[in-house]
């Protein structure tokens, strides 16, 4: 019975805090995505040949986001029934967007207006070990193009 009470409490805490963190994070993501919209992201490896010569530099951004107790439990149940693990989808979506935003903020600091050759890498921190902290890292990197000032 004690086990059950502890479990339900953890579940409620996980849900409450997880929900709070997620809502807040999405609000911040939406705000910053708007602010960084003028930095173009391009998946192509090379800039088109007609682009005026620019200075290029590697930019990267990484985000690590932990899963909460509630999400992990729901995902555990998904192990039985299969289907979309929605609780992890939002987690990865946040990590991905946060990583891109951090990369973009680095690009902005360099004065870049576009980033080429965007790559995303995802890593699980816990590597499926039991009792380990379930967290995911997403790394975004690319080649920032900084326009050269034309000397008049």
């Amino acid at each position: 019975m004690i086990d059950l009470i502890v479990f339900v409490t953890l579940l409620a805490l996980g849900y409450g805090f997880g929900r709070m963190a997620e809502t807040g994070h999405y609000r911040s993501i939406h705000r910053r995505e708007k602010a960084f919209r003028n930095i173009l992201l391009i998946a192509a490896r090379f800039p088109p040949p007609d682009l005026v010569p620019r200075k290029t530099q590697l930019v990267a951004g990484s985000a690590v986001i932990s899963v909460d107790y509630f999400k992990r439990f729901v995902a555990g149940l998904r192990n039985i029934f299969g289907g979309r693990v929605r609780s992890y989808e939002s987690l990865l979506d946040r990590a991905r967007r946060e990583a891109i935003l951090r990369m973009k903020s680095q690009a902005r600091a360099l004065g870049a207006d576009m980033v080429f050759n965007i790559k995303l890498e995802t890593a699980s921190i816990s590597k499926g070990r039991r009792n380990a902290i379930g967290a995911v890292e997403v790394l975004a990197y690319g080649t920032a193009c900084v326009p050269q000032k034309h000397e008049a």
Partner: peptide
């Protein structure tokens, strides 16, 4: 066991 967590143990156990 298959659902992979001690979390589930407690509920299913009781």
């Amino acid at each position: 066991g298959v659902s992979g967590g001690d979390l589930t143990d407690s509920v299913f156990g009781s």
